[in-house]
Design a protein around this nucleic acid. Sequence first.
DNA 1: ATTTGGGGTTCCCTGAGGGAACTCGAAGTG
DNA 2: CACTTCGAGTTCCCTCAGGGAACCCCAAAT
Lengths: 156, 156
Amino acid sequence: MQRTNFGDMACSIARTLDVIGEPWSPLVLRDIWVGMNRFDQIQADLGISRKVLTERLGHLVERGVLERRAYDNRPRYEYVLTEKGRELVDVLMVMAGWGDKWLAGEAGPPVLYRHHACGEIGRVDLRCAHCGEPMHADDVEVLAGPGAAPEPASAG
Amino acid sequence: MQRTNFGDMACSIARTLDVIGEPWSPLVLRDIWVGMNRFDQIQADLGISRKVLTERLGHLVERGVLERRAYDNRPRYEYVLTEKGRELVDVLMVMAGWGDKWLAGEAGPPVLYRHHACGEIGRVDLRCAHCGEPMHADDVEVLAGPGAAPEPASAG
DNA sequence: ATTTGGGGTTCCCTGAGGGAACTCGAAGTG
DNA sequence: CACTTCGAGTTCCCTCAGGGAACCCCAAAT
């Protein structure tokens, strides 16, 4: 997809970017998340080139975030999120929250999220899975982990 | 940057992708986040082309997520995160969490995050800002908001 | 027998990414 | 004072990925 191979870097962010590191993949996942599961639907909604959509869908299936399944006797297929893919939607929700806050302007957010648990329109918030307190950029210290690269560049 | 203009879509995800919708920008932000603030440092760490790095840094400054500031009498500059940029790091943390879980393999995560509040190695977790309960892909209903597009495609 | 519709392929053109060399201005060095 | 060094980019060329439009295949429906 890209010229540089991000999947081989010793960095979980780079590896994730190997899956959704260009603009179309996240938008494809969003469409599928909200129930647009078919090729022509997604193509029309996004205005993406058919060629590129074919390639992206194939890539996402290959990486295990989507599953391609037949929905008819005819050769008709739809794409659905796997568990891996549903968890990847977390990234999209945080992107949406940031975009709502910083890029929406006068008109307000284009989309609202009603939280099933409380029934309210909610925003997503990042918390430490261990202690439950807020966890943002300045709240953490970054340390080398077991899978850190031995000596070449690019930590993180 | 890209051929398609994502910033004009009525979708906060697409708008966010207009800022960090290709693989280098998130990695540049990560480097700056962990304290690599200078051009040559970032270039060497990432292995990115100098041309592309120049363009990305300019783009990120223009979008207000980075600030370029002189750090010497000589023409020397460093890049630092603005508040808008620090909040964008939330997206990176979630990417890192997903990559740690789904892509790290045998070796384990390349990087660990120690949470200042509790001192433990923690993972980030998504919660509803309103009720505090978990908030993931299946926990929300997506509704049109005030800034929704009138009639053309692409909700979200 | 022909049309329709979903799900792609193919082809061509443009423009973004990669790489390496070059520039520029301000210190530092002999 | 000439020369090197260093940070921070520019410039140039080449290749390959993205965009657009047309085309293809298969299985109903008419």
